[in-house]
Design a protein around this nucleic acid. Structure first.
Length: 222
DNA sequence: GCGACAG
DNA sequence: ATCTTGTCGC
């Protein structure tokens, strides 16, 4: 799996080939609850300054939402962002930040779609399958599908749930791996603090990655 | 051809 | 994602 990731990042594997890989790996996603405990959650997010990707991985206690530890990674990224192919651009950075954590976690939360994806294999699925962990995908914008009430359907299949704690601030929850949409939704919702709209793992990962990006940017300017 | 389009 | 001041609104 690691080999696959580096190959893709290196020569920018053709889009067509990546799509084939997504279609194949999509069948590997486990869409039901496949874990005993969900005590520690890891949130990951990536910020960019030119071609530098600053990824943050942070672990929290699911119940108390207290921070356990965090990890920052800096990597070069040349792959451009292309809708539906975010994994090409962001997976390397995310994995290296996660790799920097000292302790293991039970659940992964990614700032991207999971199964709510043209080939049912968004970045959250890729990371979930790569790490073989229960994974939840949280997107702030709609990539594909039709909104029907609190659900998003693709070809008639319910692939995401919408949570809107603040008006105009919707998030789209879809599964990455080894979890059911129902469990993913309730877990995500339980981790959103009052007056916030993102679950804590992602709100904090976003904050840490932006801080790392801006700190590095400033030190470069000196 | 046109519009839509996670981060 | 990122570039960016003041400003409109709760």
């Amino acid at each position: 799996m690691e080999k696959l990731v580096s190959e893709m990042a290196q020569n920018g594997t053709e889009c067509a080939k990546t799509k084939k890989i997504q279609e194949f790996l999509s069948s590997k996603v486990i869409t039901t609850d496949h874990f005993k405990k969900a005590q520690i959650v890891c949130g990951v997010d990536v910020s960019y300054v030119d071609q530098c990707a600053f990824a943050a991985a942070i672990t929290l206690d699911v119940k108390s939402l207290q921070i356990i530890e965090h990890s920052i990674s800096t990597t070069r990224v040349t792959t451009p962002y292309m809708p539906g192919l975010l994994m090409l651009r962001e997976s390397r950075a995310a994995l290296s930040a996660i790799d920097g954590l000292r302790e293991d976690f039970d659940l992964l939360m990614v700032d991207a779609n999971g199964r709510l994806h043209p080939r049912k294999f968004g970045l959250a699925c890729f990371l979930g399958v790569a790490l073989d962990k229960p994974t939840i995908g949280i997107a702030k914008g709609l990539l594909c599908g039709q909104v029907e009430g609190v659900c998003v359907k693709l070809e008639g299949e319910k692939l995401a749930h919408i949570i809107e704690k603040r008006k105009g601030k919707r998030i789209f929850v879809s599964i990455g791996n080894k979890i059911s949409l129902k469990t993913a939704t309730s877990l995500a919702e339980s981790m959103i603090k009052d007056h916030e709209w993102l679950p804590e793992p992602l709100r904090l990962a976003d904050r840490f990655s932006r801080q790392a990006a801006s700190t590095n940017q400033n030190s470069n300017k000196k």
